Amino acid sequence: MHHYLVNASLQIVPVVRDRHPYEWVDEVIAIIQSSGIKYEVGPFATVLEGQYDEVLKVIMAVNEFLYQRGCAEWISNIQLQIRSDGDITGEEKTAKFTQP
């Protein structure tokens, strides 16, 4: 795949009773934070921005982390936006809605 910037929305929904789901989500956010790619945590999902392979690497790392740590079950909701001929950024899509 190309080396342009892409956007992805990643929502992790733990289907567990062993601990509060937010605890799993907090650990996932720490994985994202340590990845070095641009991200924005929202109330329902985290938006990732970076090169295609970098973004997919983070998504794979998150799922591998949950598996390795023994999370019994989770749902990964992923949206990925790709532009064939250039970068696509979150700012480009939301700048006109930013409050002063």
Rank of each mutant, 00 (worst) to 15 (best):
E54L: 03
L48C: 02
S76G: 09
V13C: 12
V25Y: 01
I31D: 14
I29W: 14
K57M: 09
G86T: 12
W24F: 07
R19L: 08
Y52D: 08
G86R: 08
I75D: 01
F44H: 10
E92V: 04
W74G: 06
V13P: 00
Q81E: 12
G50Q: 05
L80F: 01
Y4W: 12
V41Y: 09
R69N: 07
I59F: 13
G90T: 11
N7L: 13
I12N: 04
S35L: 03
I78P: 00
N7M: 13
D18S: 09
H2V: 11
F44A: 13
Q79F: 02
Y22I: 08
A45V: 09
R69M: 15
F44Y: 13
C71W: 02
P100T: 10
I31R: 04
Y52L: 06
L10I: 12
A72W: 05
E91A: 13
L66N: 06
E40D: 06
E92Q: 14
V47A: 03
Y22T: 08
N63C: 06
S84W: 12
G90Y: 04
I82H: 07
T89L: 01
V47Y: 08
D53N: 09
I32G: 02
D85H: 11
L10A: 02
Y39M: 07
T89H: 03
T98L: 14
E23D: 06
V62Q: 03
H20W: 05
V6W: 01
S34C: 06
C71H: 00
Q33F: 00
F97H: 12
Q99I: 11
I32M: 09
L10S: 01
V15D: 15
V55N: 01
I29R: 05
Q99R: 07
H3T: 15
S76F: 06
V16C: 14
D18R: 01
Q33P: 00
F65Q: 05
N63H: 10
L56D: 04
K57H: 12
A72N: 08
I78A: 02
G50W: 10
W24V: 04
H2M: 14
G90A: 11
Q33Y: 02
R69H: 12
D85I: 02
G36W: 14
Y52Q: 04
D18A: 02
S9C: 09
L80W: 05
L48P: 00
C71G: 09
F97L: 15
D26M: 00
I78Y: 05
S34F: 00
F44E: 09
L56K: 11
E40M: 10
T98A: 12
D53W: 07
P14I: 01
Q81A: 05
E73Y: 03
R17W: 15
E40P: 00
R83N: 12
Q68R: 08
D18T: 06
I75M: 11
V6T: 11
P21D: 11
G42P: 01
K38T: 12
G42S: 07
S9P: 07
Y22P: 03
